[in-house]
Design a protein around this nucleic acid. Structure first.
Lengths: 125, 125
DNA sequence: CAGCATCCGACTGGATACTG
DNA sequence: CAGTATCCAGTCGGATGCTG
């Protein structure tokens, strides 16, 4: 069983995937190779700094391939590596869970928060 | 396809699961109901503050149930809710990916880092 | 075009001490 | 026992400006 193995290992691995922008970059690259500026446009709210940082991380982890064309001005495009492709299915599973259960999470939060309210303002009951 | 749906939605949902300690707490509770102090002992390196914060979040999200016994001194135990149980399989899938591919990630990092070294110190070649 | 460098406020999380 | 409160260093990430 998975319980017997190092949970730290597991946790560190999750970090590969769970940073704020990683999922969104992955999301775009899953469909097609894209250039830096394409990614910048498509991923709403991301800054150059964060995009670069995220791509570097993914490249370092071997999940994304960076291809630089020797042109002026420079052009660079990014695509998933074969290792990156293996992550798509696990991410889909998580995505499916999201679709199926995220409403329940939101619902639970509402209940929890209003319960907290009643704790703090038990006046009008 | 999942691409057509809001990636933001997806990202926010990932946050449910991807905080530093969440996975480890889940990991322990997957097997059995545990008391606060049990969790504190079992999860190496976690502080009371972080454990409490993580448990509160999970409770708020409806993934963990908090049961408080009206005794002195107080006793509290935690278990997964039925919603929490639905998350186990997705997490297992991610875990399996870890086992299968994390070495590749580490290997890729080594290569990337030593390539960076050569960039910075191209002396001895 | 595809970044890198810098500044800086905000948030995170660890250590420690205290409490019903 | 199961937390809460406070302090504080470190990190994250946004804004802005510069460059090959």
């Amino acid at each position: 069983m998975y319980q017997e193995e190092s949970p730290c290992h597991y946790r560190r691995a999750l970090e590969v995937v769970s940073s704020k922008w990683t999922v969104l970059v992955f999301y775009e690259l899953e469909q097609e190779t894209l250039r830096y500026s394409n990614l910048l446009q498509r991923i709403e709210g991301i800054t150059k700094k964060m995009l670069t940082q995220t791509l570097r991380q993914l490249e370092r982890d071997g999940l994304v391939h960076r291809h630089e064309y020797e042109t002026v001005p420079p052009a660079v495009d990014y695509s998933l590596t074969s290792l990156g492709l293996t992550l798509i299915e696990p991410m889909r599973v998580l995505h499916r869970w999201t679709d199926a259960h995220y409403d329940s999470v939101l619902e639970s939060r509402r209940k929890f928060d209003s319960a907290q309210e009643h704790q703090n303002n038990p006046k009008k009951n």
